[in-house]
């Protein structure tokens, strides 16, 4: 639990730092005329929204992983998961998806339509491939309810991968919409922001997966 407390404290710290950076020491009652838009963040609302959302998801997974470690330490006879090899492949695929999406975002800013198309197709395919790979991993870990009931490690594995997968699916929905707009011939400039946000989100989900995988491997 204390690890989570640290993570959350960190997030709160970031929030406080934001506030301090925007002059918590100001003396508002002195009524100095302020020039311009002091203290307003120079980021689009979508980007801020995404960052806040990622903070929420960080908290969610930090708590899941804390629960995992506490459940492990509180019980006698905890049976570790045998990590199926396919998870290494999946990790590589997700990494590739994240890279492909970054390339798509770069291509869009560079105004290169063909490169964008290739990268988008690659990113979409790889992401779906990752999800399919996770399903295969379930079959390797314990293919039925019997295993899930019998071993908390397996139950955690299911929960963690499903929750992570759902977040990726949500991302795919947004990416799918952007891709449809792209296919419909939308101006590249109009797609810049959404692809760049998708890329950020994919990198984030990659990090989350690495954290989950790391905990499963080493804890």
């Amino acid at each position: 639990m204390s690890n989570t407390a640290i993570v959350v404290a960190l997030l709160v710290g970031i929030a406080v730092w934001f506030a301090v950076a925007s002059r918590l020491t100001a003396k508002p009652w002195e009524n100095r005329e302020q020039k311009g838009d002091v203290g307003v963040l120079h980021m689009s609302p979508q980007r801020i929204g995404l960052w806040v959302f990622m903070a929420v998801v960080t908290s969610l997974f930090a708590l899941f992983l804390t629960a995992y470690s506490m459940r492990m330490h509180h019980s006698i006879g905890w049976c570790h998961l045998t990590i199926p090899n396919i998870l290494w492949v999946n990790t590589a695929i997700l990494l590739a998806a994240s890279v492909a999406l970054q390339l798509a975002a770069n291509a869009v800013s560079g105004g290169r339509r063909d490169a964008t198309r290739t990268a988008l197709v690659a990113a979409g395919t790889l992401s779906i491939g990752f999800l399919a790979g996770q399903v295969l991993a379930w079959r390797a870990v314990g293919p039925s309810l019997y295993f899930v009931q019998g071993s908390p490690a397996i139950a955690f594995f299911y929960v963690l991968t499903i929750v992570h997968g759902l977040h990726l699916l949500g991302g795919l929905a947004v990416l799918g919409r952007a891709s449809l707009r792209f296919a419909g011939g939308a101006e590249l400039v109009d797609l810049r922001q959404s692809l760049s946000l998708c890329a950020t989100y994919w990198h984030f989900l990659l990090l989350v997966w690495l954290a989950v995988f790391g905990v499963l491997l080493f804890l």
Binding site: A26, P28, G36, V38, G39, V40, P45
Partner: peptide
């Protein structure tokens, strides 16, 4: 909204 959509002159403080 608080971080991004405040009107001109509305500093956090």
């Amino acid at each position: 909204t608080v971080l991004q959509a405040r009107c001109r002159g509305m500093t956090l403080m």
